[in-house]
Design a protein around this nucleic acid. Structure first.
Length: 261
DNA sequence: CCTATAGCCTGACGGC
DNA sequence: TGCCGTCAGGCTATAG
């Protein structure tokens, strides 16, 4: 689930339900997901503080506390957040649970444990240290900068778009989505693309990301997206051709052989 | 410099 | 029914 649109939806969930709530209890159920912090310290930093604001960069979510520290969450392949309005409610692989004073609670679930839980002083600094590229959501990344970042790469357009140090937030699903809208085959070498093509991709990316967030990144509301057609003889949402699959840098790329050359 | 690959972790699914 | 291989919307370290 967790690419840029999904994480943006998680951010909005926290924004809507958790602001000004005070954390009464911290329950950490899996130590292996902690990044550069000890369980005890996470507990002491979170307990008693309240949630003040949120930020997101690419696939990373930052939850700001009134102590000026930030809880940093990454979701790996299987992570998600869920909010429960009272003390009832659980998920199957809850790795972190924050109980608020009024006994509502927020659960971070991550089946495969490929995500991470951290605590950071400053999100901007974190982004720099990790070498993350700019976040492409809405107008936060200009067209020219995008073209400059991508052009000159030796590999395929799909791997360039998925490279988090170039661009932060697109993953396997949404690169496929963007390339379908742009009408570009995922294996196309970046070198063979003209400036016009990159601009097409840029525009497709803007459109896809905004639309996906609008639909809350909910597959049920995205029947006209390629993501609902992955696997077993799916059909292109645009022309109804049978979707095909290729492997690119170890990941499955789905595309429409008719719409994408 | 850059790209492509195996490995991390767990669970669901299909074939035998 | 049970076992086994494969695959899954991420990222890192390592080999080429």
């Amino acid at each position: 689930m967790p690419e840029l649109p999904d994480v943006e939806v998680f951010r909005l969930l926290v924004e809507k339900n958790c602001l000004k709530r005070t954390i009464a209890k911290v329950q950490l159920n899996d130590l292996s997901m902690l990044k550069e912090i000890q369980p005890k310290e996470l507990d002491s930093q979170l307990s008693g503080s309240s949630i003040k604001e949120t930020k997101r960069h690419g696939k990373h979510l930052f939850i700001g506390l009134d102590t000026s520290k930030w809880l940093e969450l990454h979701f790996g392949m299987t992570g998600f957040l869920q909010f429960f309005p009272d003390s009832q409610g659980d998920t199957q692989h809850d790795r972190l649970r924050l109980d608020f004073k009024d006994s509502s609670h927020l659960v971070y679930d991550c089946q495969r444990k490929l995500g991470e839980i951290g605590l950071v002083q400053d999100p901007e600094r974190f982004i720099q240290d990790r070498g993350l590229g700019p976040d492409p959501y809405q107008a936060s990344l200009e067209q020219d900068r995008f073209v400059n970042l991508i052009s000159g790469r030796r590999g395929s357009i799909k791997s360039a778009l998925m490279n988090q140090t170039l661009l932060s937030g697109l993953g396997n699903i949404y690169t496929d989505e963007v390339l379908l809208v742009a009408g570009i085959h995922p294996k196309t070498k970046v070198k063979s693309l003209r400036r016009q093509d990159l601009i097409m991709i840029y525009k497709a990316m803007q459109q896809v990301l905004v639309e996906a967030v609008k639909r809350e990144a909910d597959p049920q509301k995205m029947s006209d997206f390629l993501l609902s057609q992955r696997g077993k003889g799916g059909l292109c949402p645009h022309c109804r051709s049978t979707v095909e699959k290729v492997t690119i840098s170890g990941r499955s790329a789905y595309f429409c052989p008719r719409c994408q050359r």
